[in-house]
Computed example of a mutant assay.
Amino acid sequence: MGRVTATQITPAAGPALPPAAGGQPLIVGLDLSLTSTGIAGHGWTDHLRTKTRGDARLDYLLTGIATFIRAADLVVMEGPSYGHAALAGHEDLAGLRVLVRRYCWRHQIPYAVIPPSSLKMYATGRGNATKGEVRSAVADRYGIHTEGAARYDEADAYVAMAAGMDWAGHQLAAVPERNAKALAGCAWPEAVAA
């Protein structure tokens, strides 16, 4: 599959991702975390968990994430939560985001960033929804039931992916207009797969 440059397609151009073999582009959602990263694609969720620290942890997470995104047409990751009170690991989490962005850039994979409040708004219609409300919205709207310790991380990743599918013109399920307004608050790529 060929790639295009930023001067060829812009977000204002509307849906730009071509359908992949299954009729839809491969869009992967990520909820990046140092201890439990949620990952999702159309119809599935997964996660990476680790208790390692430092550079070994970043290497483990990036290597695992790369196995999910290496063939993606678009990666949509949840952005940072600047209001989050716990700053432990802040530098490493910011580093993980940069490593994932750098991986995407090196491999010419377009990526988008969805702020936490926009992710919650897209899922529930409220930018301050709880993790449980987001998880319930994913189950109700898409029929995806996330379970276990990473259930909230996987649900957030699924919403990121679903927002990306909507932006690309492949909406997975009807979303109220109020929810869809959240797409305007995201940083969408200027270059996408051809």
Rank of each mutant, 00 (worst) to 15 (best):
H84T: 13
G43K: 06
G127N: 01
Y142E: 07
I114A: 08
H145N: 10
G132K: 12
V134A: 00
R97F: 10
V138D: 09
L93S: 08
P116N: 01
V76N: 00
Y142H: 07
V100W: 00
L74T: 04
H145Q: 12
T37I: 01
G95C: 04
W44P: 07
A40S: 06
L58W: 07
N128M: 05
G143C: 11
A85G: 14
G38L: 02
N128D: 13
Y60C: 15
D55W: 07
H107E: 09
W44A: 08
I65S: 03
T63N: 13
T146G: 06
D55Y: 11
V75H: 02
L93D: 07
T130R: 14
Y111L: 03
I65M: 05
L93W: 09
R135Y: 06
I69R: 03
S117P: 05
L93F: 06
T35F: 12
T130N: 14
C104N: 03
R101W: 13
W105D: 15
G38Q: 01
Y60G: 15
D140Y: 12
T146P: 06
P116R: 00
G43H: 06
L48I: 10
H42Q: 10
H42E: 11
T67G: 15
W44H: 10
E91W: 10
D59C: 08
G132N: 13
Y60S: 15
F68L: 07
L62F: 06
L58I: 08
T146D: 05
R49D: 14
Y82D: 14
T63M: 07
R101I: 15
T124R: 01
A137S: 13
K120S: 08
G79D: 11
Y111I: 04
G43N: 09
T130S: 15
A88L: 14
T130P: 13
G79H: 10
R135A: 11
L119Q: 08
K131Q: 03
S81A: 15
G125L: 01
G143V: 06
L62V: 11
R101N: 13
G132E: 14
A112N: 01
D140M: 13
G38T: 02
A88G: 14
I39Q: 01
S81C: 10
A129M: 04
R53Y: 12
L62H: 07
D140L: 14
N128C: 03
E91F: 12
E78Y: 05
I109F: 02
A112S: 01
L48P: 05
R97Y: 10
G143W: 05
R57A: 08
V100L: 03
A85C: 13
R106A: 14
L62W: 04
H84I: 12
A71K: 10
A123C: 02
